[in-house]
Amino acid sequence: MTVLVYAENWNGNFKKSTFEAVHYAAELANLMDAETVALTISAKDDPSQLGKYGAHKVKTIENPSLETFNNQAYADAIIAVAEESNADTIVISNTSNGKAIAPLVAAKRKAAFITNVIELPESLSPFTIKRKTFSSKAIARYQTESDKKVITITANAFEYSERGQSATAEAFDFQTTAPNQELTSVSIDRATGKIGLTEADLVVSAGRGMKGPENWGMIEDLAEALGAATACSKPVSDIGWRPHSEHVGQTGIAINPQLYIAVGISGAIQHLAGVNASKNIVVINTDPDAPFFKAADYGIVGDAFEVLPKLISAIKTYKAAI
């Protein structure tokens, strides 16, 4: 038996979510007494390092036609490797590309498709597993009878560790079948130098309480001092103070970092839906009755314009001392 994990890369490099997925697949394989095979497509990073996170073998695909991402072709490649290595269970990260590939793999393999998974299965037979649902307002226990499964896992839900072994990597000869579908990538626009929001361990977020975009310097300074990503509430991106890609919540990005600092955000139910899975929440708000305090671990009732400069300098002092 084999668990296959698609080890995604960005411009050739693995990211944290890749290691989380490999680690998850290895833990799952361990439960199933199976082997863990990782697949990389057009990766530049050394594939054998995936062994450190639990992969026994790595299959690598280098094919000029797969240099740029194409969900259809990538799904076909994953299916080809799954068939060759007899993998009934396939693990994919819940990233933007993962979400574009995974349903295609599931449909073509006639596999049970379970997304947003947050834990290892609690039982293998019958296969029972927890996933986030109702926009993170609830957790559902899913069961499937199907032998074939495609599981996508939530970023930051699993901590990975290095186990120190190195995996053997071998090239997999994938022949793209004549494309019956045409979708070509024209250009990719990436905000460079920024920490990705979904994968960030620490997030500093702000809302309408900041009064205007000109005051975001403080938010960025705090994020920089911490090494955090920045986020915002929906109205802030709606009025254009911040880009839409920073909007978190029920209709924005759902995140679950180690630390979420919310400044001048009231804590409306739709906002909380996307952030309440954060392990620690700090709320800074002038209004002691702001609903966000009910969801917070630490709270400061105070004016952001006074609290933030002090907090930034306290963090800098702390960082300088370690």
């Binding site: 590309n97 979708l183 070509t184 990538s185 250009s187 990719i188 990436r190 905000a191 929001l197 979904t198």
Partner: peptide, 9 residues
């Protein structure tokens, strides 16, 4: 896409 956008045809 994560941290950006992609244009396709």
């Amino acid at each position: 896409i994560d941290g950006g956008k992609e244009t396709l045809q």
